[in-house]
Amino acid sequence: MFFHIVLERTMLLHPRFFGPKLRDTLTHQLLQDVEGRCDGKNGFIVAVTNVDPKGSGEITSGTGMVKFPVSYNALVFRPFKGEVLECVVTQVFKMGFFAEAGPLQVFVSNHLIPDDLTFDSTQEPCFKSDTGEWRIQKETEVRLKIVGMRIDATNISAIGTIKDDFLGEIRDDATGT
């Protein structure tokens, strides 16, 4: 799910940046530092929408660098355990398939795929029903539920399931998508 949240960060700036453009430098530096990053607490930081320096900086003794507390608004993508979301399948193989929801990669193991869908690699690798009515292959849009997440320092990946009611391949409905 995408969120718009307020985050805080302490920026460390070299004295050579002091001057009329200090604020611009601060903003630029912040964008460089945080956009595109990911951490377990806030998820993927997609874009910073507003930067708001808080008060004046504080010179650190010894180095001359100045600490600026900054608060900023950011658009983040943060997955949650139990969340249901739509994904695009990127790769299918015997053990299951990978799908992407924006920056998040989700793996769905074949244990979490309904039993009536079987792996077939005669043409493009896919999971399909006996009749061929349902077929999950590369580029298929699926709705899945996140059952677990792996969080490390720079990335989040998830384990998903489609073995539940109203999950699996997305079909165009009467409302038209």
Binding site: M1, F3, H4, I5, K41, F80, V84, I146, M149
Partner: peptide, 24 residues
Amino acid sequence: SEEEEDAQQLKLGGGFQRAQCLLN
């Protein structure tokens, strides 16, 4: 904190409980 999280029960934890969610 990850164990306590459960979107099905709206347990989002931390700063996300009241955060502004966005439609695509």
